[in-house]
Simulated scan of single mutants.
Amino acid sequence: MIPDRPLDLGGERFEVVYQLACPADEVEVRARDICVEQTIEFPESLVSDPHILDGIVGQIRSIEPLDRGRFEVVIAYPVEAAGSELTQFINLLFGNVSLKPGVRLVGFDLSDTLAALYPGPRFGRTGLRRLLDVPDGPLLCTAIKPMGLGPRALADLAYRLALGGMHLIKDDHGLTDQGFCRFEERVSLCAEAVVRANRETGRTCLYLANVTAPVGEIERRARFAKDAEVGGLLFCPGLAGFDAMRSLAADEGLCLPILSHPAFQGSFCLHPDTGLSHGVLFGQLNRLAGADATIFPTWGGRFSFTQDECLDLIDGTVRPMGTARPIFPVPAGGMRLDRVSQMCAFYGSDVSLLIGGDLQAHGGDLVASCRRFVELARHSFESGAMRSM
């Protein structure tokens, strides 16, 4: 094998952390397999160029035993292998080895070169607070639903939710451009309704339009939403791609906060010995791709996340990652008003609590239900009974 040009490598590497579930006598071989599979994907014995073997192939930095026949493995990859595209960076993190049993991606760092390529969220926690003029305490989020309502009915919901004191009102992720609720009419009416409520209350509430769509439609819908004066965007990277979300976040013509929704991503993280950790999937990757807040199903709701998994996710929203700002965790999925103090105690004040259907389950006065939500969160914050994250 004769190289067509000498490799020009700077020696800069970044580290990726995996967990392997395997017998102790196999762990080193399996770790080495990751080093090769994720880079050259070619038999090492057939590579004669030492610059490829030493410069391109991943390097094992450490192997540490955990429990239950699991091990933590740290592998360092050259930044050149990641190129300058988010798609290839994610491929390098967990491409082919995602197809192998007993391998779980649990963390990664960003070297200086990668940090410069991926600045992360435009707003993050601090910027979103500034937009809303809410310097401290939990943010309150809700969704317009159920599917089947028309644009005017959803706009009326959005108006009452904003009057009640919600900070963030998002499209339900299942609302796109169905015949019974066309995107452009819904977005225009809901944006206008929230602007009208803001004028009446003197507060700032942001309506976030769902712009998850076929690839050729994403930018058009985002620009329509911007022109309609929405306050932000909802996006499902599991459906349309992390790089599509990154493109929205980087677009200087939009400059809108982005709320990421976890649709289609559950199977990526649910088995403890495969896939992606909750901190990587919902925290680090969302920050890398520019989300300012990340929705996830909280423990104790109608999904199966545990408290430890939720804490790992929270860590992923704040752990050092170059210059990428921390983002808001948005626990959801069965949140109820009677759990607000419990959730505040668990998640702390840098959280956005998302309650959807339960706001409509306490009688006909939706504005009053929202105000109760506001009071419960305020009391929890002012009482000081909140975790420091």
Rank of each mutant, 00 (worst) to 15 (best):
P320Q: 09
A345T: 13
I90S: 08
F282G: 10
L86H: 11
L270R: 12
L168I: 13
L140I: 05
A153L: 11
F224H: 06
R325M: 13
I169M: 07
V318I: 03
D171H: 00
P331S: 03
K170C: 10
A225T: 05
C310E: 01
D365R: 13
G283Q: 00
L281A: 03
R182F: 05
L366W: 09
Q19S: 08
A361Q: 09
P50S: 07
S98V: 00
L354P: 01
A377R: 01
G384H: 09
M343F: 07
L154C: 04
P135L: 06
D54T: 05
V230M: 09
G102R: 07
V194A: 09
E192C: 08
A385V: 12
D177S: 14
A82C: 15
V215W: 12
P214Y: 13
W299C: 03
L313K: 00
G348H: 03
G95F: 09
R203Y: 05
V16M: 05
D365W: 10
M335H: 01
H173G: 03
G283F: 00
R5A: 14
E64R: 11
K226T: 08
Q178K: 14
A324V: 07
A116Q: 14
A197M: 07
R5G: 03
P326N: 04
M321S: 11
N210Q: 14
Y118A: 05
E37S: 13
M389C: 06
L168G: 01
V187N: 00
S341M: 10
Q265S: 12
G83N: 12
G290T: 05
R186N: 07
G148R: 14
G384D: 08
W299L: 09
V280L: 03
F305D: 00
I327G: 10
S341F: 02
L259I: 11
T306R: 04
C344P: 00
R32S: 07
D136Q: 15
E15R: 15
L139T: 15
S369C: 05
A115L: 02
S45N: 14
A225V: 08
T87S: 15
I144E: 02
T39S: 13
L46G: 12
V73K: 09
G275A: 00
P329A: 12
G241L: 13
A244V: 15
A81F: 05
P257G: 03
S388V: 12
I169G: 04
L132C: 11
R32K: 14
F268K: 05
